[in-house]
Design a protein around this nucleic acid. Structure first.
Length: 448
DNA sequence: TATACCCT
């Protein structure tokens, strides 16, 4: 991919038109990112939440399409693709689907590849932080030399669970042109969430101040932490924020196991927020009890699951697709019929067959990994000594930046300090960085 | 030791 677009004229003019039409003003840095994407064969845009990545993608798409260029949109997860599609009003797929991933008895392969490449002029990949070397390799194998690549993501979020550290290695190697977006437009300038997200990234302890939007409540035992979290979610925060404990407040856990792990917090919060009650229907499935009123999460992409829109302009419309990470509330349970009614995303009514229950979990609490890419009014997180691999700066940063209005950390100061200091996640034994540095001066990404 | 993504 060495093509450079020298054929798009008047980029400044086009950007200005986009600004006018959408009633926005880009910063110099944002314009630089757009121009880069429009003129370079491969480019990379990185920035935290609220730095304008999505708006920039929309502008890039619009200008490319005005030029008659064919643009494909993709992301590493189903939810990220769905969000991208909604934001851009243009079809977006998982990278896997774009490459036409096929599974036949334990064999996995991609229909798209060097002999059957993606036929388009530009591919835009969002949420690059979650892309691992495996899928990146196949994406590049299916990308023609004449197809441009625009890679977008937040380098400070959790790295892919799979092998590699693609986004950071690409930035570090300095082989691919990139723009770092730093200014945050979403929150007000005096937000402690933004300030402290930066401080955490710099290895500094958060600034704490009364009546701000960032709290750290010191508790030393796990039992105390659990008790505090229950009080916060059931009473204090709903009052303080006039918030709905189900939709506005999200507990995020570094790990699943333990007293303050996801499983246990879910169980305890269910008892307080939606207790057993003779009048409420429920179904016991394996370790979980699902009850009418419970907050739940779909944990596997289901492209064929049908839903009816029950709110807003599209009311009555029937469509399909509930994705890994989608959150819903159980409205009714029909045990004789073997199905329940769940409303996902506040507006999608699904008749959910019991045979799908392996793909459903309680969601009063979720792991920080699962929360990646989502945002909530308020997040609450236990901070304790847990598995060292989870006690990292990125994990803390990712959790904190999920909050739009309020962050409450509950736990041990020493554990919080440890996380802020711990950059170990960067320890990936990837040869990509060295490889890029040494060999790829001209062929660049082809051998990735 | 532990987080967890993709498809039919």
């Amino acid at each position: 991919m060495v093509k450079e677009y020298d054929d798009i004229l008047d980029i400044d003019e086009r950007i200005f038109e986009f600004e006018k039409k959408n009633n926005i003003v880009f910063s110099q840095n944002q314009k630089k990112a757009i121009k880069m994407a429009l003129t370079q064969g491969v480019s990379l845009i990185t920035g935290g939440p609220g730095t304008g990545k999505t708006t920039i993608i929309k502008c890039i798409i619009e200008i490319f399409e005005q030029e008659g260029k064919k643009v494909f949109l993709c992301a590493p997860t189903g939810r990220a693709a769905k969000r991208m599609q909604a934001a851009c009003q243009k079809e977006a797929k998982t990278i896997h689907r774009l490459l036409e991933m096929t599974v036949t008895d334990s064999q996995v392969f991609f229909q798209k590849g060097p002999n059957n490449p993606l036929r388009c002029d530009v591919i835009i990949v969002d949420e690059m932080s979650m892309v691992d070397s495996y899928i990146m390799y196949y994406l590049l194998s299916a990308t023609k030399d004449t197809t441009g690549l625009v890679l977008v993501g937040d380098k400070d979020q959790l790295p892919s669970v799979g092998a590699g550290n693609i986004l950071k290695d690409l930035i570090r190697s300095d082989v691919v042109p990139y723009v770092k977006l730093t200014e945050v437009y979403r929150q007000s300038e005096d937000s402690f969430i933004v300030l402290n997200a930066h401080r955490i990234n710099n290895g500094e302890f958060p600034h704490l101040q009364k009546n701000s939007d960032f709290y750290f409540i010191q508790k030393n035992s796990q039992e105390e932490i659990l008790k505090t979290i229950v009080e916060l979610v059931t009473k204090k925060l709903p009052n303080y924020l006039s918030a709905d404990p189900l939709t506005d407040i999200q507990v995020l856990c570094p790990s699943k196991k333990g007293i303050v792990g996801m499983y246990n917090i879910n169980k305890v919060l269910q008892q307080y927020l939606n207790p057993k009650d003779g009048s409420k229907k429920e179904v016991v499935y394996k370790e979980n009890t699902f009850r009418v009123g419970d907050k739940v999460m779909q944990i596997k992409n289901n492209y064929s699951l049908e839903f009816t829109i029950i709110e807003g302009e599209e009311k009555g419309k029937v469509s399909t697709g509930i994705f890994n990470g989608d959150i819903g509330v159980i409205k009714d349970i029909d045990r004789a019929g073997g199905a329940m009614e769940i409303v996902f995303d506040d507006d999608k009514l699904v008749f959910y067959d019991f045979s799908l229950l392996d793909d459903l979990e309680l969601s009063y609490a979720m792991t920080v990994h699962k929360s990646q890419g989502s945002e909530f009014r308020c997040i609450v997180m236990p901070v304790v000594e847990t598995y060292p691999i989870l006690m990292t700066r990125n994990l803390l940063y990712t959790a904190v930046t999920r909050a739009k209005e309020l962050v409450v950390l509950v736990g041990k100061k020493s554990a919080l300090e440890y996380m802020i200091a711990n950059q170990k996640e960067a320890m990936r034994y990837s040869a990509l960085y060295d490889f890029l540095k040494r060999k790829l001066k001209d062929t660049q990404l082809q051998a990735l």
